[in-house]
Simulated scan of single mutants.
Amino acid sequence: MSAQFTLYSHVIGPNGWKVAQVLCELGLEYNTVMMEFGDGENGVKGPEFLKINPNGRIPALIDHSANDLIIWESGAIIYYLIKKYDTEHKLYPASPEEQALVDTWFIFQVSSFGPYTGQAVWFKVLTGNVNTAATDRYMFEVHRMCKLLSGQLSLEGSNGWLVLGKCTIADLAHLQWVRFLFKLGIDLETEYPAMYKWKEAMLARPAIARSTVGEVWN
């Protein structure tokens, strides 16, 4: 029996892995197609993939049980999955009030933590810190947001999770981007111990272990 979903991802792209983690947490079967950057035969800018995602980015997801519905943008994919398949509210609560609390941190990752971290990696690592002003700006923002996350994880009653005292899509959205911080020379264990403890608890989840098979970085 073929898998219900096809996930288009990348070996080091955090956004693809966070979708895989949601799929695994919900017990959904999927196959992954690993794409490459660029416009080659298997590239995200190539003509075949652009038919799936005209924006030329990963991830993209096809739900074969819904007439091959295509969704792209990681946030949109995750919202689709939890709205349709999280019927037991494992990762997303039922009430609008609690949904708003989860959404706050979920959107924070999509709009702020992910983009700023990605830009910091670009300017500090991938371009060799040539533009020091840009590097300093994005590194400042990354550290500011790490302090914000650390404070949230340390709140009384949080149980070490971002919101509602349990793992939600807010936590799953952040995990791979937090793991990306080592590329910026950030030592979570010493600089942000609350985030390090949370990261280790996330990685100990069986669904996370299943979703990260084939990873090439830590």
Rank of each mutant, 00 (worst) to 15 (best):
N55D: 09
I208Y: 14
G151V: 09
R137Q: 02
I71R: 03
V163M: 13
S150I: 04
G40Q: 10
Y138D: 00
T104E: 12
Q21L: 09
A60G: 10
M145H: 13
D86A: 01
S111K: 04
L153D: 00
R179I: 10
K147Q: 10
A100V: 01
C146Q: 05
G38N: 10
E41Y: 04
V110Y: 11
A204T: 04
K147W: 01
F106H: 01
P54V: 07
F5M: 06
I71G: 02
G128P: 01
K84I: 06
L26C: 07
S211N: 07
L126T: 12
W177G: 00
G151A: 08
S74P: 06
S158R: 14
N53G: 11
I12W: 00
M195W: 11
W161P: 09
Q152A: 10
M202W: 04
T117W: 01
N159W: 13
P59C: 00
W72S: 15
S154L: 01
V125E: 04
T87E: 13
E191Y: 04
P59H: 03
E36N: 12
K199H: 05
A201Q: 12
L162T: 08
H89N: 14
M1L: 14
R179A: 13
Q176M: 14
W177Y: 07
W177C: 01
E88I: 05
S158C: 12
Q99R: 15
L26P: 15
A207W: 05
S158V: 13
V110P: 05
L50K: 00
E73K: 02
N42G: 10
V110M: 15
N129M: 06
T168Y: 07
I169D: 11
T132Y: 10
R179S: 08
V142M: 04
G118A: 10
N159V: 09
Q109P: 12
R144W: 09
E48D: 15
G43W: 08
M202R: 06
G151D: 07
E36A: 08
L50Y: 11
Y8W: 11
G165D: 01
A3N: 14
E41A: 12
I71Q: 06
L172H: 06
L23K: 00
P115D: 09
V22S: 04
P14K: 07
I77D: 05
R57K: 15
I107F: 12
E98M: 05
V19C: 07
D68A: 08
T32E: 03
S150L: 03
N218A: 14
T132C: 05
K90N: 13
A120I: 02
Q99V: 03
G38M: 02
G43T: 12
Q99K: 14
V110F: 10
D68K: 10
K197N: 10
E73D: 15
Q109C: 05
G151E: 08
R210Q: 15
I12A: 11
G118Q: 04
N218R: 14
L50G: 03
V125T: 05
